[in-house]
Every structure is written in C-alpha cells, then in structure tokens.
Design a protein around this nucleic acid. Structure first.
Lengths: 132, 132, 132, 132
DNA sequence: GTGGTCTAGACCACG
DNA sequence: GTGGTCTAGACCACT
C-alpha cells in the first residue's frame, strides 16, 4: 500500500493521509484518473474513523489533488492546478528557513544543508523508480 | 529587537520565540554567554502570557541553546552541544521531504526546489551581514 | 444537443438535466409540445444511470415543464403554469441575496453586481439567437 | 443576534453559519477586529454541536473572513483579501445564470429579474442602516 | 478558557 | 455503495 499511518505521531492523522496521497501522486504511484479507496474502505483498512478520512479527502479536493464524482467515488485529478499557489510558496519559504536555522544549530554548514536536500530528492527518486 | 512575534500566525507563539532565539544565535546577534531578558520582561515587551515565554525558555534549555543560572538569569549557552541530534535530523528529513512533495505539487522541478533553498540561505546571509 | 452534463460538477446530475431542459425551453430550443427523448435514451446518450434521468423528469413534471403521456412519451408542456410560484420566488430571493453578500465579499460594488446580472442576461440572449 | 439558524432547512447548518457571518460582516454588523463568540458559546446558543460550529469557523478562516488567534479566540479579519476569487466569480455566474432561467420559467421578464435584484439590494441596504 | 482532532454511530442525498 | 452532515462525548495543545 502506498500509505502509512502512525496514529501516535504528532502529525494529525488526516494530514498524514493528505500528505501520503500527495506523495503517492507526486511519485506516480497514483496516476491521474485512478480511483481511490472509498472513505470507509480506507477507514477500516487503517483502523481510523471514517470522518477522519473524509476530512482528509475534503482537504485534498480543496487542493485540487482529487476529484469526487457523486455516488461513484473519488479519483486522482486529471489536471491538478494548485490553488493558493503564492500563499503556499510563502509558507514553504518560511518553513524551510526555520529548518535551515535548525540545521545550523545541529552543526550543519550551508553546504551540508543543501546536500541534505539533494540527498532527500535522490532518495525520493529511487523510491519512485522502485514503485514503477 | 532580534525577535518578532505574530500572535495571528499558525505557528504557536512559544515556538516563534524558540525559533527567533535560535535564529538570533545562529546569526550571531546573540553571542554565547550573553544575557537574555527575563521571562517577565520578554512577556511584557511582546504582550504575551509569561507562561508562554517560560515554555519557550524551557524548550530552549532542553535544546542546550540557553542556560538558566538560578538567581542570575538566563544566558546563551557557551557550548551548544545539541541534544537528540539524530532524532532531530530525522524530523528534519521528514519535514523537508514533505515540503519537497508540496513543491512538486506546486509545479516546481527538483532544480527549482534546490534553487529555492539556495535562495533562502542567500537571503539569510544578507540578513546576517546587515545585523552585524 | 441542447444538453450538457458534467458528472464531476458539484451540481447533482439530475438537477443539471432539470436545468438544462428548463434552459432549452426558455431559449426556445425545445418548443411546447415537442417530444423529449425517453428516459432510457437520454440515460444511454449521456452515460448516466436511468434512475437519475427518471428523477429529473419527475422533478420537471412536478414543475409543469413537461408532461408525461402514458404509452406515448414525454413532451414539453403547452402551458407551463408554474407550481409553487410564491415559494420558488422566495427561494430565489434568498439565494440571490446570499450571492449578493458573496459578491460584496469578493469586492464587487452594488453596481458591479447589477452589471454582472445584465451581462449574464446579455450572454444568454446571444446564446439564444445562435441556437435559433 | 445577527444570526439565524434553521435546523430543518436543506442548507447545511454549518453553511448557514458561514453565510450568516459573511452577511453580518458585509453589513457592518460585525466590524473588523471584533471578537466572535467562542465555538462552544455559539454551539450552546443555537443548540447545535460544537463540531458544526467549528467546521463553519474553519471554512470562514479559509475564506479569510475571520482569524483565529490561538488560545484567545476568533476575530473578524482586518483585511479580508478573498481567496480563489476567479473560481468563486465563475461559480457565481453559473448560479445566477441558472436562477435567471428559473425566473423566466416563473414568468418574469428580463427587466423583472433585474428589478428583483435591485430590490434585494435595496432591502439589504435598509437592513444595514437599521442595524447601525 | 480557546480551537483542533478523533471516535462511534447515525441519517441523508445521490447514482 | 458513494460522500456529506450531524451529534455526543472525549482528549489535546496552546495561552
């Protein structure tokens, strides 16, 4: 399965689902047009409440990642077209900036940090190739 | 002042203080051994609850960024020696990985993302030079 | 064809059919007395469930837009004579009022809103002339 | 009170709250910066579940109508700056267009419809003046 | 005290 | 069977 949930993590479960599905679509594990498990299927599969999954799906729909077709189910969007692009880019800058400071505190140099980022991307690509 | 608090931000205030102080020490605005304002001073200065500042100071002490000397006050640590290094690096990887996925969804390429990181570091350096 | 169905839209499919047929009769594309496709024909043509089409036809019959003649088929009503006129006018007022508030929130002035309405009517007339 | 809830209406309760608050801010009954009742206060006042109110507040926050300040409460936004403006304008056009067709079916002329809109705006202004 | 999240279980509209 | 909404009641983080 392309999703992992840790109910004990600090990250809210519904956000773990959101990020898991975003990650899976970014990797191509979930292709545009593909059908997602129903809210209740996913809920029983991961032993969480169906409302939690529903909240995640609604968030994904607002972000144009998925599409709900009434009575038929939920599907990966054909054309993502992200919403609130500017705002989300700003949030990203803020967060990355904070993490960079954290890295400095952990004794990393600027080059170390960039290499860490490169490494993460590299690992992500390996992961993607494996899942193809 | 080397600290900015936005009570309306999503980031909890106590974390804003933590990150603000971490950022200031990383930039050299706050030097090792330097005395920090007392909990109550900082609280009145930024119009936040003193419990909030206290919580931030506790977090900073756990991270070895500051040292509390009873009866004397709070000071920037001489030797940081970060705690939980491995765990915090892991958190950083996770978060950066999540942000990378977000970037992909916003239409950025891998190079775009690395350039964004470079840009953030560059900006941070400019900021640091100005504050010297 | 005088009907367009988008299964991905928020609007329920059966309402899309209702409104499509109402629009077509209002434009004169469908003339009074004209025969409509059967439930099953329309259902296969637009690849929707025939229950969905049936529901739309029922709604249209209740609104006196169409008439079902047993064994012969379904026809556009000769004399519309709308039912529940008062109630439907009230619903319309409520909805338009809500949309006006939305317009204010989107930064439109009162004149902007009226001009928008004029524009919609104008466009609708162009559309009607083309389909003649 | 500037809010009316009808639990028996077709409109979901949380949307009634959303629209009620949008209407109140558009009328100036709720001024920028003003504090809203807490989620639980509003919930008990209108005898609905607090989750329902929370859902409404979250929707309003996404629309930049209100701002949540952690631990302090919820306030009307200083600068609204609507999100998804284009998309919402498109939705508005669609809906107004549909209502216009409905009006034609109810026997209204184009001028009648525009006058209805004018009337609604007029009534809204009277309402606003009364609440000042 | 504030809002945010989650569960359990229910009902509804739609297809 | 699909998702959407609502209730009742619980726990948590933050101020």
């Amino acid at each position: 399965m392309w999703l992992h949930i840790d109910p004990r993590a600090n990250e809210p479960i519904y956000l773990q689902i959101v990020q898991g599905i975003k990650g899976a679509t970014a990797k191509g594990v979930l292709a545009p047009g593909e059908k997602l498990p129903s809210v209740r299927e996913l809920a029983t599969e991961f032993a969480v409440n169906h409302n939690t999954v529903a909240k995640a799906y609604q968030e994904l729909e607002r972000d144009n990642v998925i599409e709900v077709i009434r009575g038929r189910g939920t599907f990966i969007s054909i054309e993502p077209s992200p919403t609130n692009r500017e705002e989300r880019l700003k949030d990203m800058r803020m967060s990355l900036s904070t993490w960079f400071v954290e890295a400095i505190h952990l004794g990393l140099t600027e080059e170390d940090f960039i290499n860490l980022v490169r490494d993460i991307i590299h690992e992500w690509n390996l992961d993607r190739e494996m899942s193809e």
